[in-house]
Amino acid sequence: MNRTLIYLAMAGVAVVLQTVLLPVLLQGYHKPDLLLILVVYLGLHEESRRGGLLVYLLGWAYDGVAGGFPGLNGFVLFAVFLAVRGIVSRVNTESSPLLLMLVVAGTALQFVMLAFALDFFSQTTGVWSQMAWQMPVQLLLNFIAALVLLRLSVWLQRTFMPRKTLPGLRKLDSRYES
């Protein structure tokens, strides 16, 4: 329960950052998708049932601040979560480069699922080409944001909870240590 509340709080902070602070700092429409990074992390380190339910709920709540299609982000983020869960037994989930790689792959999957759901089910037109133009910038932003978050979480953990460990950050290699 405690962990779920922490995840919800993190999602809340991500939403506020994405809607108010990052648009001012980055001066444009593009901003990193911090919630997607959280979903990838949940996929790597949370149990399927609890994590899946939480991700779907977060996706529904995300619709309140992103786009105008109820259930769209729930579907897309749930797909990203399931894809990560699908490979989790075959990889070393403690590897930080893996998290970065999965964030990039998750962004690509998010693009495909969003474009598919919008193109086939809603009346939105030209969505594939329009989103494809934005895709490289979004990939780069999400990658940089994941890298910064990794460094920041290691620093926070060492500064404020030196005796505790964060799942997925136990065996960090020196590149991500601050």
């Binding site: 994405q18 809607t19 108010v20 992103a66 932003l141």
Partner: peptide, 14 residues
């Protein structure tokens, strides 16, 4: 206008 869309894919404001 107090906020923008949380996602880069959509164009809404609050």
């Amino acid at each position: 206008v107090i906020a923008e869309d949380a996602s880069s894919w959509f164009r809404t404001v609050t």
